[in-house]
Amino acid sequence: MVVGASHAGAQLVTSLRQGGWSGEIVLVGDEPVLPYQRPPLSKAYLAGKLGLTELALRSEDFYLKQDIKRVTATVEEIDRSASELVLGTGERLAYDALALCTGARPRRLPATGADLDGVHYLRRSSDVEGIREDAIPGRNAVIVGGGYIGLETAASLHALGLHVTVLEAADRVLERVTAPEVSAFFTRIHQSEGVDVRTNALVEALVGDSRVREVVLASGDSVVADLVIVGIGIEPTTELAEKAGLVVDDGILIDAHARTSDPSIVAAGDCTSQDMPRYGRRIRLESVPSAVEQAKVAAATICGKDKKIAALPWFWSDQYDLKLKIAGLNTGYDDIILNGDPTRDRDFTCYYLRGGELLAADCVNRPRDFVTSKRMIAQGDRVDPGALEQAVESRGTS
């Protein structure tokens, strides 16, 4: 039984069959559509370039041929003593093995007026459909949050002909995840495209009658808004696990085999938190590649195979003609090296080092740098700063 028709959930049921699980497989999700890719929601799907059919992770025929049953329902409770799930309908489903892939939800904006019409969050296909209805060319769109989701959405809405303002409460966009030089680069790009990027912009209230028409900042300034998209982070969906008595610490705690505090239950994806010796701390990864890796390991564990979560975390973001690919995590870096000029170019790499060891790399339109960096980080290589600065890499995009 797999709860959550996410990237992790879809991968887990696939890997179960590939791993030799011959019993019944049931995938329970609360959306009445096939499991789909979520990263394109703020990009190609919002822009209307792709539909849900193209985003589907697997076809309907795949699930039928693999004898994987899909159930559209909410799960209200895990009855561990009876090995049953209690659905929102009251129906009970028995399980021999259980996997939780419950994902995450958008963090809500703690401001007056956040419940007005025209205020959107972006996590599901239905969210994007609501945004599309409001995204009429010439309208004023305000993005609250200058993280990757916010910037990707800003690029997509700008391409649709809207006037876009990005409001970031911190000193710079992407402050939590990138070096200042990378933040400055993305600010420059968005401003050059015509997006109004404002930092140190703390939202105090959203104003309107029944529908939002203005965003008021703590500074007293206001921004006209026909629609608002909130992108201030996500929170792991852990209530089901907590209610069942599983250990939760900024996510469902899992070990290297994707097992929860109940060895008979595994978990994978954005809902999980794991110890990562490479970085010396517990981390909750918001990453599709990591969710897929965890799901494969979880499936192996259910099938009785000894497999550990070991793949290097990596991420990506598409904005305009730019493809940012990130290898590793820059947590604890004490130095950076730039290859390329982010103040002028549209391709460069920012390497993050700690004590001479390469921790991570932000590669903008540098696919070869990304591949090389992943290998070096995984191997724990110490690097020659001069070689990184002078390296001549591909200028192509992936």
Rank of each mutant, 00 (worst) to 15 (best):
A111M: 13
T72H: 09
G146L: 00
R38C: 01
I149Q: 00
Y121M: 14
D67V: 06
R132G: 08
V142H: 03
T53W: 10
T72N: 15
R92D: 14
G51E: 10
S83G: 08
Y63E: 02
H120L: 14
P40Y: 04
Y148W: 15
I131N: 08
T102V: 08
Q37F: 04
L87Q: 05
I78L: 05
V119A: 12
D127H: 14
I143W: 00
I143Q: 01
G145V: 00
V71C: 02
S59R: 15
R139M: 10
A141K: 01
R139E: 10
G88R: 05
T72W: 08
R139A: 07
I131E: 11
P106T: 05
L50K: 12
V33P: 01
Q66L: 05
P35G: 02
S126T: 11
D30F: 02
D134L: 09
T102N: 05
G146Y: 02
L93G: 04
G147T: 00
R123V: 09
A99W: 03
A56K: 13
R107K: 09
V86F: 10
L50P: 10
K65N: 15
R105L: 05
L50A: 10
A47F: 12
L151F: 06
Y36M: 06
G103F: 11
V75C: 01
L98T: 05
A82L: 11
R58H: 07
D61G: 14
L116A: 07
D67Q: 09
R124N: 15
R123S: 14
E77Q: 07
V119L: 08
S83F: 03
D96A: 11
K49A: 13
V71E: 04
R139C: 14
G145S: 06
A114C: 07
P110D: 08
P32S: 04
R107F: 10
R38N: 02
L55R: 09
D79G: 03
L64N: 07
L85M: 07
R132C: 10
T53F: 14
A154L: 02
Y95H: 14
A73M: 10
S42P: 00
G51Q: 04
D61L: 12
A47N: 05
V119N: 06
S81Q: 14
V75E: 00
I131P: 06
G145A: 03
D117K: 14
D67W: 07
G88I: 12
I149H: 01
I131H: 07
V142M: 02
